[in-house]
Amino acid sequence: MTTATLDANAQALQTISQRERMWRTFTQNKAAVVGLILVIIVALIALFAPVLAPHDPLRQDTFNRLAPPSSDYPLGQDDYGRDILSRTIYAARISLMVGILSVLAGGTIGTVIGIFAGYRGGATETFLMRVVDVLLAFPDLITGLLVLAVLGGGLFKMIIAIAIVISPRFARIAHGPTLALRERDHVLAARSIGVKEGRMLFRHILPNMLGELLVMASLWTASAIRIEANLSFIGLGVSPPTPTWGQMIRDGTVHLTTTPWFSIVPGIAVFVTVLAFNLLGDGLRDVLDPKLQN
């Protein structure tokens, strides 16, 4: 017990200087800073959508459908005469919600499976990791399609589908380090004094791989947003009239030659957001990955 307390104190002291060092490393990476700023901007846009959006994103005005950009509608009107700017702003909420919640759900489930399989070993490991391998064998979009085909469309089901796509990635990432960590002295010591399995996994193993998981989470948030846009694009997304970027791009494609801004505006929004999360994830990797730090 005494040893553990001392360890904790030493760790706390180390953490302060370590945090400073990490922040410095992060800020040195200009692209990562840009990514962080963009993510914050997108998050603020999503948060303050009702204040920022000039019009009700659901109000139709079919008599002025596909109207070009004007002073009242800076990005034009869609095929129901709805304001494209307001819909793009509101769609940020859905994209971020899907991105974050699906990574949270998929990441948690995947990590637990990975750690558990790695720590237990034997038949449990073989079984769980082969299931993960099977899931990994399918491309993201195909897995998403299969799940949505079974569950049906809608926001909540979309989040579940993307979480299922993501979870095997996290299982794979968590599994490897667990194999090494379970042989480490502090884990063996904990086991020898009879620490329970659950506590072992979450207090002694998980904290040692949080950095890697965080990087993965950031990168997969970008992918989740992209998958959401893809699934919405093929018509399996959130129910209308809720605006999503993928659905907006899809609706605009048939008008690409006559009113290109209809697809391009949400397209740029997806592009910027996905890029922002990728840059942020890349920066976090620089900070948190011990191999790259050297």
């Binding site: 469309g153 129910s239 209308p240 009239p241």
Partner: peptide, 15 residues
């Protein structure tokens, strides 16, 4: 859906 919403009817559309 949008027109019915004007008179308070909520039609939920599943595509």
């Amino acid at each position: 859906q949008a027109q019915l919403a004007e008179v308070g009817i909520d039609m939920q559309v599943d595509v």
